[in-house]
Design a protein around this nucleic acid. Structure first.
Lengths: 333, 333
DNA sequence: TTGTACGCGTTATCAA
DNA sequence: TTGATAACGCGTACAA
């Protein structure tokens, strides 16, 4: 097999084997109606010439790419990487390949990616990107691209969705906390532009406090470990008590570390809970009480639902994952 | 724009605008030779019909897909996710999209993925997968697919590579360690089937010890945090001293945590170094001395090199990243 | 400046 | 069981 040759086409195989391209096509696609003799002859020729079919031409002819588009802000968050892994597992099992459309948390990029998804002719798409709204999903969908949307409630003919519920866990956490004598108000760590999941949680946090008529606090931090660590080290100069609900493990870890390094005790003085629990939660010391979701499973479920949607076999178009509270060392029982 | 309509083709746009498809094509590709009048007319029609070109047909006609294949074992490791992020950044900037081929650390899957890469007609590929060997890369390459290989030395007409050097740092670490009085032998944590990077490091570790005629130890552990933690908790019942070189931060963290939880002091009794340092290294307490590489930058560099390779403009086909030692709390100075 | 006609590498529908 | 031949949707010389 020569190097850097132009790729062999089905036509060249046909010629070399002394048959028509229709026959070669039949052999490739393992359809019947081919004599054992010609089949082996063709297969031998294919091997000899090193022929590989062109996925492009196949896709153009069949109108199926066996590609799934995955729209995410970035693969750089542990929970997103976990989800991606779940998607990828099922995709491999079912013979699909993933095309990645990373938006980078900007509305502009997200819209550009929508265009690319449409142009790329994927067989379906999984969207987990808070920049994208209902109209965007409808747009992508109007180009006959079945879509699973993660973390937003949208249903439609060719649209399914997966959502998360933190409400129950959050409520219980809050009520348990205030059931104890003379506690300080809880503090919710607000991160600017961190997406719907945090926004929903924050809303619920506030509503829950109003319901039981308790005070609460909101604090703004930057979405970076070192920045948060610095800010809290300063904060702990004047504050010696607190219960914090943070978005991610690394944010929670920053608070815990800042507290510990400031000579405060966790959980006696400072308590911290993380909303999106990952591996970090049980590796750091003290370990962090977290709300956990099996993100890998979220990915797997998304992909399974999408495949059903593509085959028009999806019955339940909406699915909900309930977060579970894993209590660890960063809170008191 | 109706929902679920069949997609509008360039031909329908041409007809609706009262021009030929060639003219529409020119407008799409922003080539000149079109009157301002007809251009606006065509553009208006495109918008009205909601026309999007078919990437498939374009690719088939031009022999360019603007897709880059990325072959990795999994996106679930922090350092791989970081690299993926770097690749993705540059890809977006340059108008490419990534297709993910995840192999899952099995030779069989890896070979199947090679086939898929070839069939998919990507414009180029970045391979970071220890299951894949030189012949596999040559194969993929023989189908005129320029390739950047990460963590393996291969050069060829259309092949470039990026490699890592841990040797210098490792040597210095070892020599510094034994320059102090009466130390125990160092222990290298061996993980089965963890890839070339670890293998090379281990080889160097051994060679370096032999050179200075010092004893050393090798320990086998499982590549899982909790398993390693359990094993070491047991181990520390009978061993109260040690210097360990671990593969990943989470392995190192498992050792550190096992030591701390067993009442041993880090770094006075137990010292630990991690080969592949990530964010974990400075989030856990005590922080972990690590050899760090900017994996995001590795990804960016890979993509830049690949683009040059595609354009036949790549001059230096081999690039090396040197690991740097970041000393933290898990070792003594 | 615009249009015609062919090629890209397949699949699929007919006849033979 | 085979083989022409027409799609599939687009780019592009070449001609007008």
């Amino acid at each position: 097999m020569d190097n850097l040759k132009d790729r062999v086409t089905i036509y060249q195989v046909a010629q070399a084997a002394g048959v028509s391209l229709a026959t070669v096509s039949r052999v490739i696609n393992k359809q019947g109606n081919v004599t054992e003799a010609t089949r082996t002859k063709v297969e031998e020729t294919i091997k000899r010439l090193g022929y590989k079919p062109s996925g492009l031409a196949q896709a153009l002819a069949t109108n199926r790419t066996t590609n799934i588009g995955v729209v995410i802000p970035s693969a750089n968050y542990v929970y997103i990487a976990n989800m991606l892994n779940g998607i990828s597992e099922v995709a491999k099992e079912k013979g699909f390949v993933l095309t990645l459309f990373t938006t980078g948390r900007s509305r502009e990029d997200a819209l550009a990616m929508i265009e690319k998804v449409i142009v790329s002719h994927v067989d379906g798409a999984i969207i987990f990107d808070d920049e994208l709204d209902e109209e965007d999903v409808e747009k992508i969908n109007s180009y006959s691209c079945p879509t699973i949307v993660v973390n937003k409630k949208i249903v439609g003919d060719r649209v399914g969705c997966i959502n998360f519920s933190y409400g129950a866990v959050l409520d219980k956490l809050i009520k348990d906390y205030y059931s104890r004598p003379e506690e300080n108000p809880m503090t919710f760590i607000h991160v600017h532009n961190a997406g719907r999941l945090l926004t929903h949680a924050e809303r619920r946090f506030i509503a829950s406090h109003q319901e039981i008529e308790k005070e609460y606090k909101i604090m703004n931090v930057d979405d970076s470990y070192s920045r948060t660590y610095t800010d809290f080290t300063k904060y702990f100069e004047n504050h010696k008590k607190g219960y914090f609900i943070a978005y991610r493990d690394s944010t929670a870890a920053a608070i815990v570390n800042a507290a510990t390094d400031s000579g405060l005790r966790v959980p006696e003085d400072i308590q911290v809970v993380s909303l999106i629990g990952t591996k970090y939660g049980y590796i750091v010391r003290p370990t962090i009480t977290s709300m956990v979701l099996d993100w890998q499973e979220v990915g797997r479920r998304s992909m399974y639902m999408l495949i059903d949607l593509i085959r028009r076999e999806l019955e339940e178009k909406s699915y909900k994952f309930d977060a579970k509270l894993v209590e660890r060392q960063s809170t008191q029982r």
